[in-house]
């Protein structure tokens, strides 16, 4: 009896729910997700935004007083004695380094990732799945551990230097570690799968009869790549570029470990301000600047996608 009543109750509850208008139903179903994003995504972001307009407390924290100093500090240095502003490029340099290193990581990932994706996409289907699985294997290991292993490889007594010395390219160890090169290499290594996977996804969907048709119409390999494969996999290429660019731009580990804290990227600056420097508003302002850089990148991507879709339809 009790079970029957339960079942009946349940039925009416479901009936009542499905009787609601579509929009209400979606809202109810989405509410847990909204709550989660609001509490852990939106709220901290608002907090950071507010903090960036406050005055730093002496021992960390903030003083609740409106100020644009944090943003001004990014470009100018205030003289301690007379309070005049002088242009200071050092923070701007960190921003520029971040953008340039992220850009180079994108270029490197593209040069390695496209041939890799093409190779995988042209294998028989069974082998393809195995290879794609192998591409994702690095994700199983902590990024910190992987970055540490990069340090071991690159350091003066590391395997890379001993190989270079053994084959006589260099007489003494090259200082590879703690350079921009090391950071770039770290970014390239960390985010390469983000380039391979979307390009593979779009290459795999290409009808390879089109490639045959192009060969038939007197196109050589290079022309097939240039006129058929690249244009048709452009959505994947663009997606891969942004998937590499955005995390590279905000990367913390690679510059921290491989750059040795000397070659800062914007994330390291933020961490420093919230940590040792105890200038929370400046850290928050740097975070907002990073966020706007990412948003600009995303907007460019969204606009390009929209334009491409208009062109296709």
């Amino acid at each position: 009896m009790a079970e029957q009543r339960d079942a009946a109750n349940q039925a009416t509850w479901i009936d009542r729910f499905s009787g609601l208008p579509e929009a209400r139903r979606s809202l109810i179903l989405l509410s847990p997700a909204f709550a989660l994003i609001g509490a852990f995504g939106l709220a901290p972001l608002c907090l950071i935004l507010v903090y960036s307009f406050l005055v730093p407390g002496t021992y960390g924290g903030v003083v609740w007083e409106f100020s644009l100093d944090a943003y001004i500090q990014f470009l100018f240095e205030r003289d301690i004695f007379d309070g005049t502003l002088a242009f200071n490029a050092s923070y701007l340099q960190i921003g520029a380094r971040s953008v340039i290193l992220a850009g180079l990581a994108v270029v490197g990932c593209l040069l390695i990732g496209f041939p890799t994706a093409y190779f995988i996409a042209t294998r028989p289907p069974g082998l393809r799945n195995v290879l794609i699985f192998l591409v994702t294997v690095p994700f199983w290991t902590n990024l910190l551990v992987r970055t540490f292993s990069m340090m071991l490889i690159l350091r003066d007594q590391g395997p890379l230097n001993s190989i270079l010395m053994d084959i006589g390219i260099t007489g003494q160890p090259l200082s590879l570690l703690y350079t921009d090169f090391a950071i770039g290499l770290g970014l390239l290594y960390s985010f390469l799968p983000f380039m391979v996977l979307p390009i593979y996804a779009s290459l795999e969907r290409i009808d390879f009869r089109l490639v045959e048709a192009a060969y038939d119409l007197y196109a050589n390999r290079w022309k097939v790549l240039q006129r058929i494969l690249i244009p048709l996999s452009l959505p994947g290429i663009a997606g891969g570029c942004f998937l590499v660019f955005i995390p590279s731009l905000s990367s913390f580990l690679a510059p921290d470990l491989l750059g040795g804290g000397k070659h800062l990227m914007i994330s390291n600056l933020i961490a420093q301000q919230f940590g040792t420097a105890r200038n929370w508003p400046f850290g928050a302002a740097a975070a907002m600047i990073l966020l706007s850089l990412v948003l600009i990148a995303l907007m460019i991507y969204a606009r390009q996608t929209a334009r491409r879709e208009r062109k296709v339809v």
Binding site: R209, A213, Y215, D216
Partner: peptide
């Protein structure tokens, strides 16, 4: 194929989309 003076009309046309 690209060095043969031969062209093909494919079964599913294979037009470049």
């Amino acid at each position: 194929p690209h060095k043969r003076p031969i062209n093909t009309v494919f079964q599913h046309y294979a037009l470049f989309p």
